[in-house]
Simulated scan of single mutants.
Amino acid sequence: MNRVARVVHPIEQESYRRLRTRLDTSHFPPLTRAVVERVIHSAADLEYATDLVMAEDDLVKAHAALHAGAPVVVDVEMVGAGITRRETVCRLGDATAGPGLTRSAHGIRLAYEQVGPGALWVIGNAPTALEELLTLDASPALVIGLPVGFVGAVESKEALRASGLPAVSNVSEKGGSAVASAALNALLYHPVSSEETP
């Protein structure tokens, strides 16, 4: 697959320079550093450096799967709009709420029926979407679980970490579409090494 090098705007370069003068990220492994920095960049919130939870080994495998063409599923269109250079699947528009099932959760079910196992899931809005994903046998390449809010967000992210699935999450109520898409973009933008090429 031919990949066109991404051109980084001077404003983004300066933003990263300033970020690194305020926070030393050099101790993070490469992909973890990429995710931490891009999430912080998206939110201008340095606290994400200690709030995010992820494992480099999971990111390495997810990075390879992503660049090998694994589907990317998002819980809401806003997350998809923030993911550049990649098509995403979002089924929220086809979903309906029912007894004990939110529209967001139903959208996740529909997306799983469409893509099957092995996708990268990016959830930045609804805790119920993340909770529903955890009930499915999705065998994800990665779950970026960063829903935001005071009701259910912390608990859904705790459940994600307890599940043992490869994941990027955070401990606090913070999150949202911008940071979730930023975490995925970090993996998209990171160079592919010869060892990862399938």
Rank of each mutant, 00 (worst) to 15 (best):
P127I: 11
A167T: 06
L101E: 07
Q114L: 15
P127G: 07
S163F: 12
R103Y: 07
P117N: 02
L120V: 15
Y112P: 02
V151N: 00
F150K: 02
D75I: 14
P99E: 14
S139L: 08
R103G: 13
R85A: 13
A81F: 08
S163Y: 10
L92Y: 12
E155D: 10
I144L: 06
C90A: 06
E113G: 07
A167D: 13
L146D: 10
P117I: 01
G100D: 13
A167K: 01
H106A: 15
D94R: 07
I83F: 11
G145P: 09
V115W: 02
A138D: 12
V154T: 08
S172M: 14
R91Y: 04
E87D: 10
I144M: 07
R161C: 12
T102W: 00
I144Q: 04
F150L: 09
A95W: 14
E131A: 14
G82A: 10
D75F: 13
A126W: 00
G107C: 14
A97G: 15
I108W: 04
S156K: 00
A138V: 06
G152E: 01
N125W: 05
L136N: 08
G69P: 01
V115H: 00
E158D: 14
H106Y: 07
V168I: 15
L110P: 02
T128Y: 04
A159Q: 12
L146Q: 09
G93C: 08
A167H: 11
G80T: 05
L120E: 02
L120A: 09
A70K: 03
T96G: 11
D94Y: 01
G82K: 05
T88V: 14
E87C: 01
R85Q: 10
E158S: 13
E132R: 10
T84H: 02
A70T: 04
T135K: 05
H106I: 10
A105W: 08
L136G: 06
R161G: 05
G118Q: 05
H106C: 15
A159E: 14
G82C: 11
L120R: 04
I108K: 02
P127E: 07
Q114A: 15
D94N: 06
E77M: 12
E131K: 03
G152V: 09
D137C: 05
V154S: 03
A81K: 11
G124I: 02
V72T: 11
V151M: 06
G164A: 12
F150V: 06
W121V: 00
T84S: 04
P147H: 01
T135A: 10
V72Q: 01
E77K: 08
A70E: 06
L92I: 15
D137N: 09
